[in-house]
């Protein structure tokens, strides 16, 4: 036994043991259990009842809310990427060439370290329809004051904008790190060839920053697809705002599991969401890797 433990073959397993054990208990076991539960009808009080693919069938063919939440979640995640990533990249690029870089970075990363409840409260005051700061500002110009948090056609947009603001600092930091890793000699060479600021950005920065962009887009998409904390704070006590207009799949799943005690159906939702995120991630990896850093 002692010889076995001290052998070279056993050493990696010994070192990896704690991590493997951790992954087994806290990752594989719950994932496997959720897969089993998704095929049952279980209220967590009485024994699970096997229903096969019934939960998946219900979600995809009968439930009038589930597909709508998927669409809204997709809009939220993609909206946050479309608005947030170029903004963060642009700001990071601008600040990389400006004075007082550190001060700018601190200012833009403050939302990252601010409590989500505080953010929710602040934006509730900003977005309030009758006396919110934004609508009062619009009133100064004689413009109407929409119901940012009360009009079903605007609630998802409002939540997306706040999420973009929250994530801006994190994405900027990642882009700033990516920018500093680009060797200055590339820029010098391009300048010698007569490249202007836009050309430097388009033909030097963007291609060399692809790994960072890939990381930001992937993590942003995954986090957006499962996100609902902000909605809980912006639309407290509701089902994702009036008319469920900002109800995301994550929040719907939470309600199913912990309010309706439909653990089986909620587990099925988590697997559908996982499948969607997995496929979308594969697509993104293929698209963004093509012609990326590896080929430069």
């Amino acid at each position: 036994m002692r010889r076995l433990l001290s052998s070279k073959a056993a050493a990696p397993w010994l070192f990896l043991g704690p991590a493997i054990l951790f992954a087994l208990v806290f990752v594989l076991l719950p994932v496997g259990f959720a897969a089993y539960i998704s095929l049952t009808d279980w209220d967590s009080l009485s024994p699970p009842r096997w229903v096969g693919l019934g939960n998946y069938r219900y979600l995809l063919t009968t439930d009038p809310v589930f597909l709508r939440t998927l669409w809204q979640t997709l809009l939220f995640a993609l909206g946050a990427l479309i608005l947030g990533v170029p903004l963060a990249l642009g700001l990071a690029f601008a600040f990389s060439r400006s004075r007082h870089q550190a001060a700018w970075r601190v200012a833009y990363t403050l939302p990252m370290v601010t409590n989500i409840v505080a953010i929710g409260f602040i934006f509730t005051f900003v977005f309030r329809q009758t006396d919110g700061a934004l609508n009062r500002l619009l009133a100064l110009f004689g413009l109407p004051g929409p119901g940012w948090l009360t009009d079903p056609s605007l609630t998802l947009l409002s939540a997306t904008l706040v999420f973009v603001w929250m994530e801006l600092g994190r994405n900027m930091l990642l882009f700033a790190a990516g920018l500093t890793s680009i060797d200055e000699s590339y820029y010098e060479a391009a300048k010698l060839d007569g490249a202007g600021t836009w050309q430097l950005f388009r033909f030097v920065t963007l291609p060399l920053l692809r790994p960072t962009i890939l990381f930001v887009v992937l993590t942003g998409f995954i986090s957006g697809m499962s996100y609902f904390t902000l909605m809980l704070v912006l639309f407290p006590g509701t089902q994702g705002g009036p008319g469920r207009a900002a109800l995301t799949t994550g929040q719907y799943m939470y309600q199913m599991a912990f309010e309706d005690l439909r653990m089986g159906r909620a587990s099925a939702v988590s697997y559908v969401l996982f499948a969607l995120v997995f496929v979308a991630t594969l697509v993104q990896v293929r698209l963004l890797r093509r012609g990326g850093l590896e080929q430069t």
Binding site: N135, P144, G145
Partner: peptide, 16 residues
Amino acid sequence: DQGNIDVGGYAYGTTV
């Protein structure tokens, strides 16, 4: 001035 209600004659709530 924006047409939003300042004083409501009747009100409902946001929760279920």
